[in-house]
Amino acid sequence: MKFGVIVFPGSNCDHDAYHVISKHVGQPVDFIWHKATDLSGYDAVIVPGGFSYGDYLRCGALAKFSPVMQSVKEFAAQGKYVFGICNGFQILCEAGLLPGALIRNKNLHFICKHVNLKVENANTPFTSEVENGKVLSIPIAHAEGNYVCDDETFHQLEENGQIVFRYCDENGEVTDEANPNGARSNIAGICNLNRNVLGMMPHPERACESLLGSNDGRAIFRSLTKKIAETVEA
């Protein structure tokens, strides 16, 4: 099993993802420079958070032109796992690997704080180790996390179980007060139809140690690792 963490100019959560995979998930992991095109040998790639290309033009809009992204598309088409976190989610939306877009937070500010997430679909490779409805405490840190999509896309997301995480209160209630950024229907993370590509605004890699305030992010990495192990064995 091998993970890759893509490094764009301006990625700044690349080291954090690397740290979690190597220290807490305990699997081999490489940094992948954005100009690389060969992803053979990897089972999953993480598109990390940060400010790829300084968020110039639009978050993720320039990163989608990096050479590695064409390979990521092919990688995803082969059914391998692609995990976009924060800026990585924005990039996957820009690149067309996930539907919808992320616009400016409703209050127009950057927001960094711990939020609660409700697991809406435990039947994905990224959430198989948790139960439906489970509440996870995971921090957000973004200025553009307000998820939008057209009605048709939204209904498809709902029908196909592609909404994986929603912002909720500590009791798991999905309320307006618990929505930090104005995202449609409190959406915090979605997957593609095949469920091998996940994008989420919150940072699970920041919630893998009690020293940092939460362990809840581990469940996501644990799910993915288990799934890969099964696939590799099969």
């Binding site: 954090d16 740290h19 950057f110 960094c112 704080k113 840190a141 920041r206």
Partner: peptide
């Protein structure tokens, strides 16, 4: 301080 990223670098 909520406008600052207080956690990056874990």
């Amino acid at each position: 301080y909520q406008q600052y990223d207080t956690m990056v670098r874990t």
